[in-house]
Simulated assay, not measured.
Amino acid sequence: MKAFEIHVSDDEIADLKARLAATRWPREEPAADRWAYGADMAYVKELCAYWETAFDWRAVERQINRFDNFTTEIEGVDIHFMVEKGSGANPVPLLLTHGWPGSVVEFLEIIEKLAHPGRFGGDPEEGFTVIAPSLPGYGFSGAPKQPIDCRDVARMWRTLMVDVLGHERFIAQGGDWGSLVTSWLAADHGDVCIGAHHNMWIMRPANVSGERAPDAEELAWIESRKAAMATETAYQAIQGTKPQTLAYGLTDSPAGLAGWIAEKFRTWGDTHGDIESRFPKDRLLANIALYWFTGTINSSTWMYCSIPLGRNFGPDEGQRIETPVGVARFPGDIFAVPPRQWVERMANVVHWTDMPKGGHFAAMEEPDLLADDIRDFARLVL
């Protein structure tokens, strides 16, 4: 395990600004809804102009570097992770896992709230020691030699938590891919993962003979899920089958990268069509710039190659998650969390919260609500 400091060279920043200034803009398909065919060009132009002239990457570096950063090699891959030791006499380790198109930047506003609740009016003895790794192929983590899935990452995270950091037990939390990694930690590594908190649910129940048919609420969710998948998962298809083709444009053009990622934040977050109501430019660009400077947009998509293989989403036949599970269902997430009874088909659900607001990127959108819910869940499992 080696200490690590985030620092992008001045030359890399100058190159980015030159590329932004020289952007070759496409024609735009006319539509009444400017976002109907993808990222609105007027907004992407505005975002890129801000990125070129006003955005302060050095401020983002300072935000990340105020936490302890490390790298360690796990299964031949260099893994980057942040650590913030919690307040109190015996802070419980809490592992946070992000997804796509997010990064550890999602957690910059929630880590301190989780580690040091006394600074925010809470009980200092309820602080967590927060560990936030970058997924393999994301950010400052290295890329695996071939695409891996969330079950593989859960095995790697066990190594990180137990063998590298020496934690005999910990709580895991995640959304997006991080939700599925968290599910696999609970399913396969329940001897050390004592609780699994989710703000998204992806795992599907295994087919079991005699299992009851879906009820009306579950059927309604299934239909809404199909509708969302029909209109919002074209990115999944290309990232899961031809990611290399996509990568040429997104690796070479910062404007292309900004459009690809910003559109997802607008649609998946609780924005009601106004992206900056949830993601002001500085917050959004911190995440986009991390992808740009690390050159990881291609390797970040490789996990989607596990979708056609079909072994990422469901437990083994007869396998059930007995580790205590908590779910925070945020209403603005385009990929809605299923009803509780659906999750209970495969997991030991001990905590459930229907949130009043918030979307897919819960740690960025509603850090207070999410931090409080994780703490409420922890009280049940400790």
Rank of each mutant, 00 (worst) to 15 (best):
M1C: 09
V8F: 04
A22W: 01
A22E: 14
P26C: 07
P26T: 04
E28G: 04
P30Y: 01
A31K: 12
D33H: 11
Y37E: 11
G38H: 08
V44Y: 00
A49C: 12
W51Q: 07
F55W: 00
R58H: 15
V60Y: 06
E61M: 07
E61A: 10
D68G: 03
T72P: 09
T72K: 06
V77N: 00
I79M: 07
H80M: 13
G99R: 11
W100L: 08
P101D: 02
P101H: 05
V104C: 12
L108K: 06
I110M: 08
S134P: 01
P136R: 03
G137P: 10
M156H: 03
D163T: 08
L165E: 01
A187L: 15
D191E: 13
A196D: 11
H197F: 13
M200Q: 14
P205W: 12
G240M: 02
T245H: 01
A247N: 02
L250I: 14
D252S: 07
A255F: 04
A258Q: 02
G259P: 00
E263T: 06
F265T: 01
D270A: 14
D270W: 07
E276I: 03
L285H: 04
A289G: 12
F293W: 09
I297G: 00
S299V: 11
P338Y: 10
Q341T: 15
R345W: 12
F361E: 00
L382P: 01
